[in-house]
Simulated scan of single mutants.
Amino acid sequence: MTGWSFTASASTGTDRRVNWRAPVRLVVLALWLVACVTAYYLLALLPGRNPVPPVFLAGVAFIAGVHIMVEGQRPRRAMLLANHVSWLDIPALAATARSAFVAHDGLQGHPVFKTLCEMNDTVFIARSQRHTVSRQVDQIRAAIDECDVLTLFPEGTTGPGDALLPIKSSLLSAIDPPPQDVPVVPVLLQYRDPQGIAWLGDQPGVENFMAIMGRARPVELTVHFLPPLVGRELAGRKAMAAAVEQRLAGALGLANKATKA
């Protein structure tokens, strides 16, 4: 096991009252954003992937008070298929695996988010337009060539954290077949207190964001990099979906037992 952490505070729980933590973290986050955007454009002329976006996202995890532990072997080059619990999943995977991400094209309607996503080489996919799959395949392969690690959340939305949502095989169309010589690696994101982290139902995104930024207690997260899919597990999107769901469910069951022990 490899352990390392981002810790911004310690105490008890999420304080729903107005407190100093959220505003202070927001100020620090704004300063960090300005510094990283400046560095990004200064380094934009260099060849290869710009190193700033993963560093920026790792800093977001630090500022938000995330304490990350890593289980398993962090891949140098892979397609990651992870469960989705919170917006914190993104900075956590960028911090641990320097990952870029696959996102639904609805984010393109938000100029600020779109710009930040594009800086991190995000691949936007149109879920409802099946005729674009071949183009999406090319985009994903190009992104892996550029970034080495790319993450897709095949549940399609955020879940409760202590249980999985069904894996949507349709979301795996763009990696069917997987890029050659690129391992497909299931990843379990396990939060110690998922009820205080998960973004569920009709909760406004800003409300969830502020609740997390106002926490007094660190966000404890274990990132489990599971063994890559092999053999028949890679025989089409439905086989991949079934294998990933089985792997994640098994790992989550073991993790929950270990937590309760």
Rank of each mutant, 00 (worst) to 15 (best):
E220Q: 10
S134M: 11
L172F: 00
L188H: 01
P91Q: 09
L42K: 02
S9E: 04
N208V: 13
S9Y: 10
V185D: 00
P54W: 13
A39D: 01
R232H: 13
R17N: 08
A100C: 11
G205F: 14
H67C: 11
Q136N: 03
M69R: 15
L165W: 05
L234N: 00
V102M: 01
L116D: 00
G156E: 02
M69P: 13
T122L: 01
S86C: 11
V223Q: 09
W20G: 14
P228N: 04
M1T: 05
D193W: 14
A241I: 01
W199G: 08
A249I: 03
V185E: 00
A163S: 11
A235V: 04
L164H: 03
V133I: 13
H104L: 15
L221N: 12
V52I: 08
P54T: 05
I175G: 00
V185I: 04
F6L: 14
M69S: 13
D145C: 06
T2M: 14
T7K: 14
E207K: 15
E155Y: 05
I140C: 12
L248Y: 07
L234E: 00
I144D: 02
E155V: 03
F56Y: 11
A239H: 06
A142S: 11
P154N: 02
L45P: 08
G65T: 10
T122N: 00
H84L: 03
F124Y: 07
M69N: 15
C36Q: 05
Y191I: 11
L189A: 02
L33E: 04
R74Q: 06
I90W: 07
T151Y: 00
S9I: 07
S11K: 15
I197K: 07
K114G: 08
A103L: 14
V85R: 15
L248E: 04
R215F: 06
A198P: 10
V60G: 07
K257F: 06
E220R: 12
R130S: 05
G159N: 11
L29R: 15
P47Q: 09
R16P: 06
L200W: 12
R192S: 07
K114C: 15
I212T: 04
I144L: 09
G59C: 13
A249W: 06
A35G: 03
L172E: 00
I212Q: 09
P204S: 07
S86A: 04
L88I: 11
F62E: 14
W32D: 09
V149M: 09
P53T: 03
R49M: 02
I167R: 00
A242D: 08
A97W: 12
A258K: 13
V137R: 12
E146P: 05
V70T: 02
A216G: 07
D138C: 10
D121C: 04
V219M: 03
M69Y: 12
G156M: 09
A10Q: 13
V66S: 03
A216K: 15
G72D: 01
E220V: 04
L150W: 11
F153L: 09
L80E: 00
G253N: 12
V27W: 07
F225N: 03
G231C: 15
R76E: 06
I197H: 05
G109I: 14
A251M: 10
A30N: 13
M119L: 13
V223R: 08
I144C: 09
G156V: 06
R76S: 10
P54K: 13
P111G: 04
D176L: 01
A174G: 06
G48H: 14
F113K: 05
I212G: 03
L229F: 02
T132Y: 02
L171M: 08
A239D: 01
